[in-house]
Design a protein around this nucleic acid. Sequence first.
DNA 1: GCGGATCAC
DNA 2: TATGGTGATCCGC
Length: 817
Amino acid sequence: MDDMKKAGNSSCNDGVLLRMGLNDNKAGMQGLDKEKINKIIMEATKGSRFYENELKKDQQVNERIEKMMRLKEKITTQQLLKAQLQVDKLVIELEQSRNLSSTIVHIDMDAFYAAVEMRDNPELKEKPIAVGSMSMLVREILTEYDPNFMPMGLDEAYLNITEHLEERLNWPEDKRRFFFNTESITEKNKDDRKTSAKFNEDACSPSPVLFEDSTPLMDDAPEQKRQSVGNLVVFGTSAEEVVKEIRFRIEQKTQLTASAGIAPNTMLAKMCSDRNKPNGQYRIAPERQAVLGFLKDLPIRKVPGIGKVTEKMLKALGIVTCSELYQQRALLSLLFSEASWHNFLDISLGLGSTRLDKDGERKSMSTERTFSEINTAEDQYSLCQELCRDLAQQLQKEGLKGKTVTLKLKNVNFEVKTRASTVLSSVSTEEEIFAVAKDLLGTEIDSVAPHPLRIRLMGVRVSGFLSEEEKKYQQKSIMSFLKSGEESSFLRLQPGKCNQTQKSEASPRGSFFDKKRAARQLKSENLAPNETVGKQLFDDRKSSANLVEKTKKVTDFQNSNVCKIFTCPVCFEEQSSNNLEELNRHIDECLNGTLVKDPVKLSKDHNARENTLNFLPQCENENVDECRKNKANQLAGADQSASTPDHSTSNNTEKFTQIIPDKPHRERQPSNLSDIARNMCMKQCLFPKRMSQDHEDHFEKTEHRKETSSSSEAKDDSVLVCPVCNSEQKTTSLESFNRHVDVCLNKGLIQELTEKKDFPAKTYNTESSHRVGGLSRGQQCTNPSQGTKRSGLTTSQSISKKAKSSNSKHTIEMFFK
DNA sequence: GCGGATCAC
DNA sequence: TATGGTGATCCGC
């Protein structure tokens, strides 16, 4: 009803505004700026577009609800009784699995409230505030209570303080004693001290509320009770005391207050932290009754994972609180998907994860941008490419390649569309991604032709990443290697300037909007520079001109299932065979020096990238030299990493050399494809490549080769550990070990060539088994972080998310692990 | 695998 | 006041 009213009002207002605008124009009202009026109308129209879309979405939800209600009507008493029995059976199981033995803490910085406070107290703005992220408090405070604590973005964290609590019982008092940093007491708090009736005179706290107990301290034995004398405070040993201590320390450190929740699982802890916000804490005792009592009147909307829509749907069923959610469990099991009602049941029973699980691997990466209407294909392609460029950079930063590219468009009516395409070979470069995205975009443009596609947002997403293991050998795979040769991106690095190089390449051509401006200018000057990609792209689409063709070539090469020509990475000679064995044999022979010939020209196919040819001959020569050198060193058993410190100033390099001594070594002598491929991997790890149109790149060799060759050094008595799958190899035979490594490596190639989904390499991967996969009931129950993050109606207490990027940082370490 | 949708932060 | 960006997941197809 309300919606109908709203809709009516909205269109009415909209109509009025439009009419007003038109009338103004028609009347030619002299006292008003016509442009200004139009702008106002535009704004109003925009607003109404948004609003209309909101109404439309709302209507869709209503339809869902109606559908659900119709379904409900059909449910018979018998069905309901049967469902009740089934669900209650599960309830019994769940009750039996209830685990109250953990103490989970959720900390939530009161950033918002701090901001408000700042706003309300301008004098505070003068005070420097040490704004610390949760990951900083990582290191500095939280880790003392739980070394495995889990930051969730900048202002939240979960801790499992179960063990800390046990240890703490035996702690002497001085370990629980803290001093006030009186200087950090804010003016506001000083005021509070005078005015706040809540202030606890015993504690000279910067935050009166912190010591305003929301829970009695009765659990503490008298001697464990917090005491404070002067600028000293001693915290007790209970969970509440621990959390107060944490909050106290956080505030001392950052001058920002935090709220916290203490409960037997993550879901409850999170809801608890919300209870006494800001600057408060709340605890649910580890007792079933306490849990259910907490939930009894709790609105379902407070449950993480239950959002606006789910709330509305449940409300339609008369469910507002968690206890009602429990009461209607049988009905819910008939109306919602299994995942959803299971989750509802967990919620209503107060069950959640009792462990803090590490985040899994990232599953997608995207970038999107909102702008004022863009409606020319030219601009849209240009923007799309820019997004691909940004995304490619981020992907390569994390060393990710994905098979699915998704284009997201939001039209001026706020309607969102996504269009995805999955390609055979994973993509990561701007050109590769754009090659896919531009087609998706083209289809959408065509679909509305001859009308223009009027959009206000565009986004590009890459998903379908290779697993960590797959990625490892993917990086080392022959294909990768050949592609490096193909694109001549390997060795195109500036000595000791790895990071800068990347950075400087980040946006060499300026943003879309810059280009647009520039293009306009150039257009007026009748120039046709390369930089005006927009126009070029547009033409490409219509006439298959340069740039698209160019990018397509690269993609086609990678996408083609049958690569007709391989180029040996050592001698750069084209290999007619695409038989892997033969190719491998050739490369091994090449490396052994038996086949090293004069550098040979690249395949004509490779001419597509004109900048390649500018420096490639040199590259070939030097590379062969390096290969020879490398081979000689290997045969001599030279230990370069030990005797020849690297000259590079790159951080990555330093890291690398530090890691070397610890890594398991494969005995050096046989130099085969694995070595080369692995070396390439190093290079890619250390100096992420990025295709660029810059022609000023130098390549350096010696430094590199030192690094890379050091990676294959041998150490006596070392265990043979496959660098690809990380598994220890029982054999002492180098030959069989090498065979294993090659097999491992070739899997990457085989996959690329055959695109087989279920890659056998998984059998090597001891980690992959628990990496992905469907959710079993048990998993969902005990490990919400792997469970449903939400649902059309499945909600969850997932604590995963955020802080994903940390994963990729360990790529190199992982490799050597 | 795709597309729409929901949700969290 | 005007209405973001990123990532994950689910559902239905």
